[in-house]
Simulated scan of single mutants.
Amino acid sequence: MKHKRKLVFICNGSDCKKSGAKKLYKELKGATDEPSLRGSCKFIKTKCMDMCKTAPNIIVGDHFCKKTSVEKVLTEIKKS
């Protein structure tokens, strides 16, 4: 049986860092430690995604989240 994990790409460009990407990463790591979400996704830090005006930027699977928050990202992670 194959376990499906979502890939979550977190931009670590300078504008995203200024907009709270580091804090967002830490909060997401903590939120996905819950038993219901444990092991459901893999976080990957990236270099600049060239979407600096909409920072912080995160890609969940094939969905691009602009000016995102923890709640928005968790909603995308929970979608099948």
Rank of each mutant, 00 (worst) to 15 (best):
K45E: 12
T68I: 07
D62M: 09
K4W: 09
M49C: 02
M49Y: 07
S36N: 09
T46V: 02
I77R: 05
C16W: 00
S19W: 00
V70F: 04
S19H: 06
E71V: 14
K6L: 12
H63D: 11
L7H: 04
C16M: 03
K78E: 10
V73P: 11
A21T: 00
E71Q: 14
K22C: 04
I10D: 00
E71T: 14
T46I: 02
T46E: 03
S69G: 13
G61M: 05
C65M: 12
A21Q: 03
D15S: 15
Y25N: 01
H3C: 01
G39I: 11
K66N: 03
S14D: 10
L74M: 14
M51K: 08
K23W: 06
G30D: 08
Y25M: 00
E34K: 15
K78R: 14
K4D: 12
G20P: 05
V70D: 05
I59Q: 06
T54F: 10
K79N: 13
K67L: 09
D50M: 12
K6G: 03
K47C: 11
N12L: 05
C16V: 02
Y25S: 04
H3M: 08
K72R: 14
S36L: 13
K6D: 03
F43N: 02
G61P: 12
M51T: 09
P56I: 04
I77F: 07
I10K: 00
T54L: 04
S40R: 11
I44K: 13
S19P: 01
S40Q: 09
K45F: 11
K67C: 09
I10L: 01
G30I: 00
M1V: 13
C41N: 01
M49W: 01
S69D: 08
I59C: 01
D15H: 13
K2F: 12
K66V: 02
A55Y: 01
C11V: 07
T46M: 03
C48A: 04
S36V: 15
N57H: 07
K18S: 12
M49N: 05
H63W: 08
M1A: 15
F64Q: 11
K53Y: 08
M51E: 12
K29S: 09
C48S: 04
T46H: 05
K23A: 06
F64N: 09
P56C: 03
I10Y: 01
K66M: 07
V70W: 03
G39T: 03
C11I: 09
E34D: 15
T75K: 15
L28E: 01
T54A: 06
K18E: 07
S80N: 15
G30F: 05
C65A: 13
C65Y: 07
K45I: 14
S14F: 10
K47G: 15
V8A: 09
K78P: 00
F9H: 08
G30L: 06
K22R: 07
G39L: 09
V70M: 05
P56S: 05
G61A: 12
L37H: 03
K78D: 05
T54M: 12
G20M: 02
V8T: 06
H3Q: 13
Y25E: 04
F64C: 11
R38V: 15
I44P: 00
K23Y: 08
K66S: 12
V60W: 01
K66E: 14
